[in-house]
Simulated assay, not measured.
Amino acid sequence: MPQPTSEPLIELGAPCLGEPEKQALCAVIDDGWLTMGDRVRRFEKVFAEMHGADDAVAVHSATAALQLSLQAFDIGPGDEVLVPSLTFVATTNTILHSGATPIFVDIEGVSCPHLSLEDARRKLSPRTRAVMLMHYGGYLMDAARWREFADQHGLLLFEDAAHAAGMRGTGTLSEAASYSFFTNKNMTTAEGGMMIVRDEKRRQRARVLRAHGMTASTLDRARGRAVGYDVVDCGHNYRMDELRAAMGLVQIERLLGWNDTRRTLTAHYRKIFARTLPSVQVPFKPDHETSAHIMPVLLPEGTNRHQVMERMRAQGVQSSMHYPPIHHFEYYRNRFPGIVLPETERYCERELTIPLHPQLSTGDVERVVASLGKALEA
């Protein structure tokens, strides 16, 4: 085993937090209203405006957003949803929770690990009801192309936009898009999520569903705007609280700048890899529109990824893998046996995620690439 380095650790991802977030949280405590209130509403409006949408619905996680998206459009038993296996497991768990069946679709290839339109066509059946896009790594899928496909076959179109916060236009061509503010995302509220739903009636249904199906909120009743309430749908407790919204209002002011920094660092990575380590492939074209959420690279075929990660860690560099294919997880192997997705599997065998966040310097980027080079040599 290599000996650990004395150099400071380069983290895979790190939230940007400081005094503004502390002050925003303290202000909520001083106000004394902690549950869903005015800050949540302001956060929704600012987020919608940034993305070119009419409005947005704040929830307590992107998983909640995905589930409410499906429920608001009555996805349920007997329906099939086309979905990638190259995504976080919540994307497909929520389909199963709805009672529908995920139908795994392969990716285009290792250089563009996005849902394959050709394989999606092959997987269509009379039960196909919807398609779930996933903007892997923050690299945007061609939503217009998929909108045309969905309309051609009478399908609903959803976006898992957990990696794409700040990317204007997401959520404007699909029925609904779901965003994440988890700790490792481009902006964070610790936990938290947001929905953009185009249709106003479906959007209102999502608002009702996030709060137990109730017709009046706690704030409405506290301020005398409502006396009592009715329950008009079978909802959930998926509300966002004022503390998270306060953090969100601070973070979103810097989101676009942070995304710019991520893109600049990604471009520097590409430059250094091309010059010093061309055996490592960077997926997607350099001009592909992206929020640069993560920095995925492809190791040379046959590389022992586990050993590479251990050796990089010994040099003070964190790494990860995005993602183990869902159809290989034990639960999904047992429930959906025999699934083969050649391109997805080929990609996942080689993928390594290296550090990317706004607090990195170009020197850090060069150190990461150098550490990967040493690990590969070893």
Rank of each mutant, 00 (worst) to 15 (best):
M1G: 15
C16A: 14
C16V: 15
C26V: 03
W33G: 00
T35K: 08
V40R: 04
E49I: 00
H60K: 12
S61Y: 06
L66N: 05
L66H: 12
L66E: 02
A72V: 02
F73N: 08
L82D: 04
L86G: 02
V89L: 03
T91L: 15
L96F: 11
S98V: 03
A100Q: 08
I107Q: 02
V110D: 00
K123A: 14
P126I: 01
M132N: 07
M132Q: 11
M132T: 04
M134N: 09
M141F: 05
D151V: 14
Q152P: 06
E159D: 15
D160I: 03
A161R: 12
A162W: 03
R168C: 07
R168P: 00
L173K: 10
E175Q: 12
A177V: 01
N184V: 09
G193H: 08
G193Y: 04
V197F: 04
V208R: 11
L209C: 08
A211H: 11
L219C: 03
Y238P: 02
M240T: 02
L243S: 11
G248W: 02
V250M: 07
L256Y: 06
G257W: 01
D260Q: 13
Y269F: 13
R270A: 06
L277P: 06
M295G: 03
M295F: 05
G302A: 13
T303W: 05
H306I: 07
Q315C: 10
Q318V: 00
S319D: 02
Y347C: 06
E349C: 07
T353G: 01
V369G: 05
A370S: 12
K374E: 15
K374L: 14
E377S: 15
